[in-house]
């Protein structure tokens, strides 16, 4: 009796050990070969990304710019603190937002280069599989057709998420070392929220590039069209808007109502661009002193206490932006899904 119970304990131990071991040995996690094809594909995509030169180059660029922006922030942070008279000045968050004018700040860089990362990881997702002739081989395995697309999306987004989390923490860590002030808990949460928004934003560009990779057979065409969209929203959209604003501007005799309507209309137009959505969202999250994103009248501002918003209120303020970004991402994903499910799985042609 006692013998058998020790036996079973030993068995339990052994199986527990095996389970733990299988957790750590990445290749062997499918102990009984039952990890689903989706997981297998995701793992393959992630290793592909991490091993690829493209990812290393993109990572290098973004890491360098992050360090550069950290450097400029450190240079100008003293002045920024001195200029800020408010009690609760969230010094740590300034690391991400201030710059001395020679280089953009951290959020500026991320907003500008994040899309490039998304595009870089997604522009040849489907068409390169097709051109290499691996698409029909994978599709001939017992795999659902959407598994491939889902795996591409999930793997790329995971890689992006991990990368931004790492970068964010790297900057935070270096910042603590340099300025010697640890972030408060709220500041830490704000940084986390900011990173989450960044992943969403890059996810949008990733999906846009996946759409292009399904639509265009040539990876070069797909990459160029994504970059065109990116350039359009980063540079030309604002120019177009300012042209439009000048022509639509109400004359000096306009009533307050007209002015307000005009301002709100322009704001609505500018928010069609994911770039400005991201900018507004991250600025609000990292600068608690931002209390509103639209025009307010003197009456509305009357009696307001000029204090920073708590995190919950900041989140509430950018909630529509997050919804907008998520919706744009989902739209792109749905489009690529529809197109891919209807496409013929043929050789390389």
């Amino acid at each position: 009796m006692a013998n058998s119970s020790t036996q079973s304990i030993q068995d339990n131990e052994r199986s527990a050990m095996a389970r733990i071991r299988s957790l750590f040995s990445s290749g062997d996690s499918s102990r009984d070969g039952s990890s689903s094809p989706l997981v297998v594909l995701i793992r393959k995509e992630m290793t592909d990304h991490v091993r690829s030169w493209r990812f290393i180059v993109l990572l290098g660029i973004i890491m360098l710019t992050c360090l550069a922006s950290l450097y400029t922030a450190l240079n100008s942070i003293q002045e920024a603190i001195r200029a800020d008279e408010s009690e609760n000045s969230f010094i740590f968050l300034k690391l991400f937002t201030v710059s001395d004018g020679t280089l953009p700040s951290f959020i500026g860089f991320v907003g500008f280069l994040g899309p490039l990362l998304g595009i870089g990881l997604g522009f040849d997702a489907i068409n390169s599989e097709r051109n290499k002739g691996t698409l029909s081989r994978i599709m001939a395995q017992p795999v659902h057709r959407d598994d491939l697309l889902n795996a591409k999306f999930i793997a790329s987004l995971t890689v992006i998420g991990l990368m931004f989390l790492t970068l964010g923490f790297l900057v935070t860590g270096l910042g603590i070392l340099m300025i010697g002030i640890p972030p408060t808990f709220e500041e830490f949460l704000r940084v986390l929220c900011f990173l989450a928004v960044t992943v969403f934003y890059v996810g949008f560009w990733l999906n846009l590039s996946i759409v292009c990779s399904v639509r265009f057979r040539q990876p070069a065409t797909s990459a160029l069209s994504c970059i065109a969209v990116w350039l359009f929203f980063s540079f030309f959209y604002d120019m177009l808007l300012s042209l439009l604003a000048r022509s639509l501007a109400p004359n000096a005799a306009a009533t307050a109502d007209q002015m307000l309507r005009y301002q709100e209309g322009m704001l609505w137009l500018s928010r069609l661009s994911p770039y400005s959505l991201f900018n507004e969202a991250t600025t609000t999250l990292l600068m608690p002193s931002v209390r509103t994103l639209g025009p307010i009248t003197v009456e509305q501002a009357h009696g307001a206490i000029a204090s920073p918003l708590p995190l919950g209120q900041s989140l509430l303020l950018v909630w529509p932006h997050l919804t907008g970004l998520a919706a744009a991402t989902l739209l792109c994903f749905a489009a690529s899904y529809m197109m891919f499910m209807r496409q013929e799985i043929r050789g390389r042609s």
Partner: peptide
């Protein structure tokens, strides 16, 4: 077509995994 930056062995193992063949 095969994944060209993977070895022949790895390509085969990928197919086996997709078919849930025990490792």
């Amino acid at each position: 077509g095969f994944y060209e930056d993977r070895t022949g062995w790895e390509n085969l193992m990928l197919t086996a995994r997709l078919n849930r063949v025990p490792e």
